Simulated scan of single mutants.
Amino acid sequence: MWHDLRMLNATTSALIAVLVLSLLGSGLWWVAHRPMFTLKVIRVEGMDGGQLRHVNPSTVRSAALPRIRGNFFTANLDNVRQAFEAVPWVRKASVRREWPNKLIVSVEEHQPLGTWGDDGRLLSVKGDVFTANLAEAEEDADLAAFSGPEGSQKEVLARYYQLAEWLKPASLAPRGLQLSDRYGWSMRLDNGLRVELGREQQPALLRGRVERLVNIYPQLTSLLQDRIESVDMRYPNGLALKAQGLALDSKKVKR
């Protein structure tokens, strides 16, 4: 009997607890779905207080709104973030709630460095390939031209920054960089000169070729001035060049 009474009390307590939790859950659900918690404000701002250059808050809001479901409590913030990151020019977004009916979306824009390939895509300064209005990108600066096998954009960008440092002693800068399907490198300089660098069969091979170009470049310009069109550095100890009305091979032009 005593044993049955204890069992009865435990069962009663459990049923009461389930009832209380059900009522509490129903009450919270009812409160959470009140009209006062319907999302009324979605504020779009630059991440870390930065200004937005290409992302128009009204436009990006309108583009993302159809993908947002729920209210202040029920909206899935990860889905909201993905909706904003799908908008052109948005590299990254973070979302937070602000009581009682606001979402604050902080946006980081892509910063274009150049074009990628021949299909109108852009490459950012952080190595992201993205699609946006090319004319808008050209408002920021002259765009470099990049290309390479699919998925090689990070490698191409890292090499671009290396080449920029290696060329500084000659007051030159790369304005385009291509990595072929056979992983051979070629670049175009800011003076229009095209340079073939070839494959990097050894870690220091490309740097050695660039240094050779830097060392001989003053001599080449003094002899040929602005007539040089392209230089081929794929020779062990020399180079071949093409100039207007002239072609020299590596046997004639050496370091």
Rank of each mutant, 00 (worst) to 15 (best):
N9K: 11
T11Y: 03
S13R: 14
S22Y: 07
S26V: 11
G27L: 12
L28Q: 06
L28T: 09
W29Y: 14
W30Q: 11
V31I: 15
R34L: 15
K40F: 05
I42E: 06
V44L: 08
Q51K: 12
N56A: 07
P57V: 01
R61I: 00
S62K: 12
A63K: 14
P66D: 08
F73W: 10
A75T: 04
L77I: 12
L77N: 03
D78S: 08
V80T: 05
A83M: 02
E85M: 10
V90W: 04
R91W: 01
A93M: 04
V95Y: 08
E109S: 04
E109Y: 05
G114W: 13
S124Y: 03
K126D: 13
G127E: 10
D128P: 06
V129H: 08
T131A: 14
A135S: 15
A135T: 13
P149R: 10
L157T: 05
L163P: 00
A170V: 03
A173I: 02
G176H: 10
S180I: 06
W185D: 02
M187F: 06
G192D: 02
L193A: 02
E196N: 11
Q201N: 13
L206P: 00
V210M: 05
E211F: 05
L223T: 06
L224W: 14
Q225C: 01
I228D: 04
I228K: 03
K242G: 08
K242R: 15
A247Q: 15
L248V: 09
D249F: 02
V253D: 02
